[in-house]
Design a protein around this nucleic acid. Structure first.
Lengths: 160, 160
DNA sequence: CAAAATACTTCGCATAAGGTACTATTCGTC
DNA sequence: GACGAATAGTACCTTATGCGAAGTATTTTG
């Protein structure tokens, strides 16, 4: 397949790239952004509003609205911190925890489906290639530096 | 890397999956949906409103608003068909064509960057793997059948 | 030729996202 | 320990997007 055909292939599949939620069958009751917010809460157990904002690269005003919705719909709960009363901490409710469990189960079933398609060598090489590409992409990312300076958190998961 | 670590890796990168436009540096002056509309116009040269609606899986009322914006901003032009005066045909303006050219150039430069990272064998195997995964994903897609029955268009690009 | 179907548009509403201004609390420093 | 600056959030308002329902114009069909 030549370079031009690859370009055509990419263009024909740009919709899938732009709207992955349509082909990844995660029939979600929350929006993509809401899911990401819940994800970060799930991964840290408890977060503060600013951490969600940082993670989403969104202003606090946006996060307030987002969390309002998730609280109203029973996925998150707010709590005013006692040590620093400016701070509001956010946790998952039981309903929220259940949803995250289901999300993980869905993703795992996808991973298994893909794994089944590939041989051990293919799997390994694919992993290597993905890492190369991820590194290449983050290398030229100007956010990389800006972001490091004043982070509320950001944990790096060491791979391999 | 074990299955669980892969899950963590996926979860940690879910944001990149959900919002690819943030790491694909396509500083766009139009929204994702608008870009997709322009893409389909570009690929067919001239389309009708219903074709855009079909492609976007959106009702015509949505498409009208979308095209209004793109016309107002000078990317598209409307024309009433003479053969069937109910039909409105859409084309790219020069400004729209320029934007699409730039989009393609950007994507090509990404492809080249990735290509440079991979050996010939890696490239080939990656292609094979992508095809396997794309096939697997589309295999279980219920839309696949529904869509075929009454399409305004939909061209399949034969790969390889 | 009248009724149905097609291709769109208009209008009004709902939601999401973000900017600006505001409140409450804590920190810094004198 | 008091007062201004900084921090953490919220409230309010505006804009953009998306869609349903109803309406218009044109073509098809029986």
């Amino acid at each position: 397949m030549g370079q031009e055909k690859i370009l055509d292939f990419v263009l024909d599949n740009l919709k899938k790239v732009f709207f992955p939620e349509e082909w990844i069958r995660l029939d979600l009751s929350v929006s993509k952004t809401e899911l990401l917010a819940m994800l970060i809460v799930d991964r840290y157990g408890e977060v503060i509003m600013s951490q969600i904002s940082d993670y989403l690269n969104a202003p606090l005003s946006t996060t307030t609205g987002l969390v309002n919705r998730l609280v109203k719909n029973g996925y998150l709960q707010r709590e005013r911190s006692e040590e620093d009363r400016r701070i509001v901490t956010i946790q998952l409710t039981d309903k929220g925890k259940t949803m995250m469990r289901e999300l993980k189960a869905t993703i795992e079933s996808y991973l298994e489906r893909f794994n089944a398609l590939l041989s051990a060598e293919e799997r390994q090489l694919l992993f290597k290639i993905i890492m190369k590409i991820v590194n290449e992409l983050s290398r030229k990312d100007p956010d990389a530096e800006n972001h490091e300076k004043q982070d509320h958190f950001l944990r790096k998961i060491p791979i391999e």
